[in-house]
């Protein structure tokens, strides 16, 4: 049912956990549906002075697909500028996982949304300052 890649990340997820005092936090999903993701980001600057995702972690309540996509988005986003990170789509995540079962594409493939929400949270906080 799941690809090797999905099962590998489910068994050994990357960047799992919480960042204390994150620069941005994205919360997506719904416990009623069975999938909730929290994406934590720490924002830094690259050599050109652009905002980049310096550190990223996730916490996920959900199925195998939800956990694997969470792990995948952290790998995809780490080190990228916010502009680049924002462009990562749900399909990109699924493709990098060698596909997801069709039924999981909609409900559990939330990680890209979670990252966008975290970046939006960071921008909102910065504006408020």
């Amino acid at each position: 049912m799941y690809s090797e890649k999905v099962m590998k990340l489910f068994r050994h997820p990357h960047n799992m956990g919480k960042i204390e005092n994150p620069d941005g936090l994205g919360k997506v999903g719904n416990p009623v549906c069975g999938d909730v993701m929290y994406i934590y980001i720490k924002v830094g600057k690259n050599k050109e002075g652009k905002d980049i995702i310096e550190d990223i972690k996730f916490e996920t309540f959900g199925c195998v697909a939800a956990i694997a996509t969470s792990s995948m988005i952290t790998d995809l986003a780490k080190g990228k500028t916010l502009e680049e990170a924002e462009k990562i789509t749900r399909d990109d995540v699924a493709d990098c996982l060698e596909g997801l079962p069709p039924i999981k594409m909609h409900c559990s493939n939330l990680a890209a949304d979670g990252l966008k929400a975290a970046i939006a949270d960071y921008r909102k906080k910065r504006q408020a300052k």
Partner: peptide, 25 residues
């Protein structure tokens, strides 16, 4: 605070066959 499909596959990795009523499965 956990979801059943993930639990079933964690158990499967440990050699145990079980089932769940979770929607995700």
């Amino acid at each position: 605070f956990i979801e059943g499909e993930s639990l079933i596959l964690k158990l499967d990795d440990r050699g145990i066959a079980a089932s769940t009523g979770s929607a995700c499965s």
